[in-house]
Nucleic acid binder design. Structure first.
Length: 568
RNA sequence: UGGGGAUUAGUCUAGUGGUAAGACGCCUGACUCUGGAUCAGGUAUCACAGGUUCGAAUCCUGUAUCCCCAGCCA
């Protein structure tokens, strides 16, 4: 576990759900058991929003004595689901650092049991087979302000319903011909209680049960029963299921089975991204991004590829908390958590993203030497490495200005800066091309400043990173920015009537060839570094031996940007 | 009055009758071989209006605003 400052040791409940569970434990409800579950439908990739639910459910599952969290797939709709998603979801949950142990389940494992319970419902007069078409059923359902009407089939005898239901299972009917409905109350102000459909006919191959079934249970029914079957004590779900709770309770109550308690919380929203499955799918399928794991996506697999650590994601979820209010969390919080984590853990390297050549005119040609650079100033145990230095080096183009503004402490004519870990240099001359662009900068170094400090103790405010031109290795670096500049793209699109894809930031990806110190040439995919003064970067799986590719995970905080903005 | 929720600083979250806490962000300053990190300080009277009370973000009443629900999706 990483040390999260937001959760001081010894504190117990940190949100209303944990308060409820703590009380239940104290009062002996559920016999002192605590069992939660994370129940995705395997119809897409997990995103950062799911991470909140994962952290909550698995977090509770490991926090209470004897507690556990089940990993369960809500695979009740064969037409949208696929094994590919099952595998990616499992991998993502694991990567986030959670473990379901033996408790991996599938709603489809309960199909037979669910079916038997459905027959029980019919026998008890709590369900009936209805022959209304989907269209008719919608009309019979009424509206939000008007009650619904009872279907003509509502009073079908239990014998007949049972017979029809068995024939539904046997495959005698086409899709849509019949459904099994709960017999509750067509006049309920809660439309979910107006005789909701429990089973529909779907002649489709299921990714796990093949064509064993042609009738499939609906979410409300399957979920309530699955929770009960697994002995889930606290069934944590998002706010939009609030109206479903009466139905969730109804299913367990009329069947007289184990009672679980559904508790709803607000889902996570993040600025500068979209989270709906529909929109994410659109981004991928219409090729606005390179795939589900394109580092600009909010999916777990994309965040992983981009370089986010699981610890940082969990830390953010901890800090965001759990409540019942619909909110939008600033991306800045996630970025803070990442920097906080990587500042302590990532090794430093020097890389120049936009090279400008500097010739140190008083440094002997052909000569070179090595300077020692610490790998992480926050952690001595990470040791040091040596970095080659020579007469010609690259510095960041931004680190030189011919006519610098006030408080620009970097390189400028006549101005002295420190080359990090190396020595002090002073700009003596500027070489330009025919268009007046600076192509080269000439400097003189202070031979007595080897290591970075002058013996006379003079202060040099600016320290810049650099790379020896003779030893530099080229690096493909992918600079990512937010996919959407608007903090609330979905809202902005809805408000203006625009298609959300029109709001995509055209500068969300910039690919550059950077010059890096030699140590970076053999980076393995997944390795994360801080490129000094620039940000955190992660080697991408596209890297080839000798041809590393890095993704910029996030920049470092840049207070110079603020200063220069203030100066105009 | 269709039903169900929500409303504390720019953003999250705590506080459950005794005079607003923490985090991110932002602003100041210190320090610094990353204008990074770190450290110090600053940054709201709790949607609104009444009421109860010695005292209310916390209780009551009313109002406003926002979110969710009419799939044989989850």
């Amino acid at each position: 576990m990483s040390d999260s400052q937001s959760t001081p040791a010894g504190d117990n409940p940190t949100d209303f759900i944990r308060s409820i569970i703590t009380e239940d434990q104290a009062s002996g409800a559920y016999g002192g058991r605590v069992v939660t579950r994370f129940p995705p439908e395997p119809n897409g990739y997990l995103h950062i929003g799911h991470a909140k639910s994962i952290c909550l459910n698995f977090g509770v599952g490991e926090q209470y004595p004897g507690a556990r969290c089940h990993m369960r797939f809500d695979d009740t709709n064969p037409t949208r689901e696929d094994i590919e998603y099952v595998e990616s979801i499992l991998a993502d949950v694991k990567w986030l650092g959670f473990d379901w142990g033996e408790h991996l389940y599938y709603a489809s494992d309960y199909f037979e049991q669910l079916y038997q319970y459905a027959e029980q419902l019919i026998l008890d007069g709590n369900a009936y087979v209805d022959g209304l078409t989907a269209d008719e059923m919608r009309k019979y359902r009424g509206t939000l302000t008007e009650p619904g009407r009872e279907s003509p089939d509502r009073n079908r005898s239990t014998e007949e319903s049972l017979d029809l239901f068995r024939r539904m299972r046997a495959g005698e009917f086409a899709d849509g011909e019949y459904v099994l409905r709960a017999k509750i109350d067509m006049a309920s102000p809660n439309v979910n209680m107006r005789d909701p459909v429990l089973y529909r006919i779907r002649h489709a191959e299921h990714h796990r049960t093949g064509d064993d079934w042609c009738i499939y249970p609906m979410y409300d029914y399957a979920h309530s029963l699955s929770d009960s079957i697994e002995g889930i004590t606290h069934s944590l779900c998002t706010l939009e299921f609030e109206d479903h709770r009466p139905l969730y309770d109804w299913c367990q109550e009329v069947l007289g089975i184990y009672r679980s308690r559904q508790i709803e919380f607000a889902r996570l929203n993040l600025t500068h991204t979209v989270m709906s499955k529909r929109m994410l799918r659109r981004l991928v399928e219409d090729n606005y991004v390179a795939g589900w794991d394109d580092p600009r996506m909010p999916t777990i697999s994309a965040l992983r590829r981009r370089g986010y650590t699981p610890e940082s994601i969990r830390d953010m979820c901890d800090r965001v908390g759990v409540a019942r209010r619909n909110t939008v969390t600033e991306l800045a919080l996630l970025e803070h958590c990442l920097r906080d984590d990587l500042n302590r853990r990532a090794q430093r390297r020097m890389t120049v993203l936009d090279p400008l050549k500097v010739v140190i005119t008083n440094y002997p040609e052909q000569q070179s030497e090595e300077f020692e650079a610490v790998n992480n100033p926050e952690d001595d145990s990470m040791g040091a490495r040596s970095v080659p230095f020579g007469r010609e080096i690259y510095i960041e183009r931004d680190d030189f200005m011919e006519n610098p503004p006030r408080r620009f402490y970097r390189l400028a004519p006549g101005q002295e800066v420190r080359l990090r870990y190396a020595c002090l240099i002073t700009c003596t001359d500027v070489v330009k091309d025919a268009h007046g662009n600076v192509t080269e900068v000439h400097c003189a170094y202070d031979p007595d400043s080897r290591g970075g400090n002058a013996p006379d103790g003079r202060r040099v405010r600016g320290t810049i990173h650099w790379v020896s031109a003779a030893h530099a290795v080229p690096l493909e670096v992918r600079l990512y920015d937010n996919l959407f500049s608007d903090p609330d793209p979905a809202g902005a699109a809805a408000g203006s009537g625009d298609d959300f894809v029109d709001l995509i930031n055209s500068d969300s990806l910039q690919v550059v060839t950077a010059m890096a110190e030699p140590a970076l040439s053999k980076a393995e995919p997944g390795e994360r570094y801080q490129f000094e003064r620039l940000g955190y970067f992660c080697a991408d799986p596209d890297s080839q031996p000798g041809k590393p590719v890095f993704n910029r995970t996030t920049t470092l905080r840049d207070s110079w940007a603020r200063i220069s903005r203030q100066q105009g």
